[in-house]
């Protein structure tokens, strides 16, 4: 179900990365990445291991500072802001490897997700529980004792608790069974329909391109291709490199 209902490209993108360079020590992980995400879109960033997908998300959320380049969110430059302030702008990051607070309960994890907001969170909890009924059943269970799929749901739910305008999802399908993966992607679509923009990083290019409006292919720190998801899925190069076809 490749999506064709691309929202009309607004005058100004919600998120805009321009010539982003990110280093780990002396190693250049991003060598001038530029990409845009429009309001209401699902955009995916696909590429192989070590291509710089997670690094891009970390740069956006402020957990790893870029050396040069700009990140604009709703027209404001945010690349110099610390992570805990970036959240308050409406950017929530669900990190790779479903890093939940494993010794806290499901409920406490969700509570932590809303740490940046000082209002009542009951409605948001209900919303997350409606999206992930499994979490409602396990609300007082220790997060570390849950299965991988449940932890992934919790990591996403926790990110949603911040009321994000844009949700950064890092490899939500990693280590999950095909059935669970499908379920997770269905929920991503649901979250998007409820009005949240999604930037999705995936190794599972096939699923990601199915779920997204547009996509970028990243290789060794550079954007290789940028197109609609449908075109990328049809692209010969992409099919050979990432969709496992010869």
């Amino acid at each position: 179900m490749t999506r064709t209902d691309t929202p009309a490209a607004g005058a100004q993108p919600l998120l805009e990365l321009t010539d982003l360079h990110v280093y780990y020590g002396n190693i250049e992980a991003l060598k001038g990445v530029s990409l845009t995400v429009g309001r209401g879109e699902v955009v995916t960033l696909i590429g192989s291991n070590g291509a710089g997908k997670s690094t891009t998300l970390r740069a956006i959320s402020g957990t790893h500072k870029p050396r040069s380049g700009t990140i604009k969110f709703e027209g404001r430059e945010i690349q110099h802001l610390p992570a805990h302030e970036v959240v308050t702008f409406g950017i929530a990051h669900s990190p790779e490897g479903r890093k939940v607070f494993s010794r806290m309960t499901v409920f406490e994890n969700l509570q932590m997700g809303a740490f940046s907001r000082r209002e009542k969170i009951d409605d948001d909890i209900t919303r997350v529980f409606d999206l992930f009924p499994r979490l409602r059943e396990r609300r007082s269970q220790k997060a570390g004792t849950m299965s991988g799929g449940e932890q992934q749901m919790l990591a996403m739910g926790r990110a949603l608790m911040a009321h994000p305008t844009i949700l950064l999802l890092d490899e939500p399908s990693m280590g999950l069974s095909p059935i669970l993966t499908e379920q997770i992607f269905k929920i991503i679509a649901e979250i998007n329909e409820q009005g949240t923009t999604v930037l999705l990083v995936e190794q599972n290019a096939l699923m990601a391109l199915h779920a997204a409006h547009r996509g970028y292919v990243i290789q060794t720190g550079k954007i290789l291709l940028a197109d609609t998801a449908a075109n990328l899925a049809a692209n010969e190069q992409v099919r050979q490199a990432y969709l496992g076809e010869i």
Binding site: G62, T63, H84, V87, T88, A92, K99, F115
Partner: peptide, 24 residues
């Protein structure tokens, strides 16, 4: 308190705590 919860989160995973909006 809120402070106690922030400490708790920080103890478990500093970078995730930072990403959830805790000024570590």
């Amino acid at each position: 308190s809120r402070v106690g919860r922030a400490w708790n989160a920080m103890r478990e995973d500093e970078s995730v705590a930072e990403a959830t909006g805790i000024n570590t």
